[in-house]
Simulated scan of single mutants.
Amino acid sequence: MPTRAAAAPAAKPGRDHRVDALRGAALLMMFADHIPQNILNRLTIRNLGFADAAEIFVLLAGFASMLAYGGAFRREGWSVGLRRLGRRVVRLYVFQMLMMITTLLMILFWRQHHTVPVDFLEPELAHGFDSLWRVFSMQALPGNLNILPLYMVLLLAFPLIYTALRLSAPLALAVSAALWALINLDPAINLPNWLDPDGWYFDPFAWQFLFTLGAWSASATRSTGGDMPRRAWAVAACWLYLAFSAVQSFPWEQWGLPKLSPLPIDPPLKTPLSPLRLIDVLSIFYLVQSSALMRRFAAVPAGQVLAVFGRHSLEVFSLGTVLDLVGRLAMTTYGTGLLMQIAVNVVGIGTLYLVATALDRRKQRKKQQKAATA
């Protein structure tokens, strides 16, 4: 966990850190959510609303992509922007493959000494590397390793999304929304996944709408520094919806309480990004990006603790995924008592923070060196 010796780097004056802080919060929630036995995941938005951290991650990916690659297209031309985007896709692929190989090796090693339930790895992959070529060719997406492939596909589509938004934002959003609506009407439209007959867990044809909305919001708020117009009626509507979402989704039984969910509905589907989930994450995003208070919070030390995770999302997510597996294996083998809960969370989150701050300092040193030689 954060210590005096490893304090979060100070925020830069004038910069909007809300996106970084929100993305950092999403990454920490992912860490908790991917360990089913972790009591912390009872307090993440997965159990306090229809959406979860994945929706936040994808929405902010669209926002950040418009700032990074859309900005490069505008300022430095398409060739520079495409090269940067291509390097990012390659980097995502390398991290995806490293996580997959690490997962396989860790589980195979652990099975030599302990019993490992088959649900830790799909049965088709549990007995060796015969089918690993399917993973390398993106034909097989194991559970908990399926969001980076979505991100890769969306980044590859970003030049088209960027062009469409530049030509006509209303038309681009309408087409994107129509494709999302089509998938909700016919969820069978999906990319194939050898490990799942239903296809990709995150259907790219549906989730592109959330990514596009993020890209559009970055473009629409560029002149206001990321601030969305704050309207009292919109704020009230968002809070009312999130309150309904929280009461409807709360795990009443896990807390030994009578179920108080007002409507007898099933949890909204994640694969096609059902409307209830979409409205949930958009409400959260609007409340954050229209709030001056949240802007100030993201710039103070407490907010920077979250923002430092968000500034290095790929590394934090990838390492967090590996630490999640360690935590799951440890809790399955040795129990889920209080000491184990503390050890898994303190060591896991503390390690992520130390790595994120080290990456932050290295990045700052490179900037300083570049400025000194300029």
Rank of each mutant, 00 (worst) to 15 (best):
W207E: 03
F209H: 06
F209I: 00
F209Q: 13
T212N: 02
S217F: 05
S217N: 10
A218F: 08
S219D: 13
A220Q: 05
T221I: 13
S223E: 11
S223T: 15
T224P: 01
G225V: 09
G226V: 09
D227L: 02
R230H: 02
R231T: 14
A232D: 04
A232Y: 00
W233D: 15
A234S: 12
A234M: 05
V235A: 10
V235N: 11
A236Y: 10
A236P: 15
A237G: 13
C238W: 02
C238D: 05
W239D: 04
W239I: 02
W239F: 11
L242E: 12
A243Y: 00
F244K: 10
F244H: 11
V247K: 01
Q248P: 00
S249Q: 12
F250H: 02
P251V: 09
E253L: 06
E253C: 00
Q254L: 08
Q254F: 04
W255I: 10
G256D: 03
L257Y: 00
P258I: 12
P258R: 15
P258F: 07
P258K: 15
P258D: 14
L260V: 06
S261E: 06
P264Q: 07
I265K: 11
D266Q: 12
D266R: 13
P267N: 06
P267M: 05
P268M: 13
K270E: 08
L276F: 14
L276R: 07
R277N: 11
V281D: 02
I284Y: 08
I284F: 12
F285S: 06
L287D: 03
L287H: 08
Q289R: 14
S290K: 00
S290H: 09
S291F: 03
L293H: 15
R296V: 05
